[in-house]
């Protein structure tokens, strides 16, 4: 029973160090050096109000907006309180039917040819803020028609909202849907 004292005291001491001092130091440095990132990378609109986070996607289904990926977040798509994926298995008949419906919705807007997988398959987080550049280009004609603007102007807007590979080679190029739609509405 000689070990009982160190067992209890080590727990208390390491709780203070790892659960108190360590996160406090990290928070202090983070807030001092990277305040914007540490607080959620929020977008501030022209009015000075916070419009959302660049990292957390929002749901869009109106033809005049670019649509994000399908979301399997709980309660409703892109609910930040219910992050998660569909967890559908690849051969699940319900899953195949869901994707079929999503393909049909896109076809109804005049899309022909192959559809990029990311636009009809749900993300892991349910909050994925981005789509592939191909998925964005596929939507240009629809958005142009709904807004009555030229496709050229939208192509430029998409290019502006596209982030390249990080440091030139990491990850994939991607388009931030919320930023893009906010800029179309002239809010940002």
């Amino acid at each position: 029973m000689k070990e009982i004292r160190p067992a209890i005291l080590m727990l208390i001491l390491f709780t203070v160090i790892c659960g108190g001092i360590y996160p406090a130091v990290v928070t202090g440095i983070a807030q001092a050096v990277f305040p914007k990132q540490a607080n959620g990378s929020f977008i501030t609109g022209k009015s000075g109000k916070e419009l959302g986070s660049t990292l957390i996607g929002q749901p869009f289904s109106d033809p005049k907006y670019f649509w994000p990926r399908p979301s399997a977040a709980t309660d409703f798509g892109y609910n930040p309180m219910g992050s998660g994926g569909s967890n559908s298995g690849p051969t699940n008949p319900d899953f195949i039917k869901t994707v079929k419906d999503r393909v049909k919705t896109l076809r109804d807007t005049g899309v022909t040819g192959a559809i990029p997988a990311d636009l009809v398959l749900a993300s892991a987080s349910g909050l994925d803020p981005q789509i592939s550049p191909e998925s964005a280009m596929l939507q240009v004609a629809r958005v142009a028609k709904a807004r009555g603007v030229s496709e050229d102007m939208l192509v430029k807007a998409v290019a502006q909202a596209t982030e390249g590979r990080q440091i030139g080679f990491l990850g994939e190029p991607r388009v931030n849907v919320l930023s893009l739609n906010l800029s179309l509405d002239g809010l940002k």
Binding site: N87, S88, P90, I115, A117, V120, L121, S123, A124, S132
Partner: peptide, 11 residues
């Protein structure tokens, strides 16, 4: 649908 299996993956 074209491309990799993107269900449950991030862009």
């Amino acid at each position: 649908v074209q491309g990799a299996n993107m269900e449950g993956k991030e862009i």
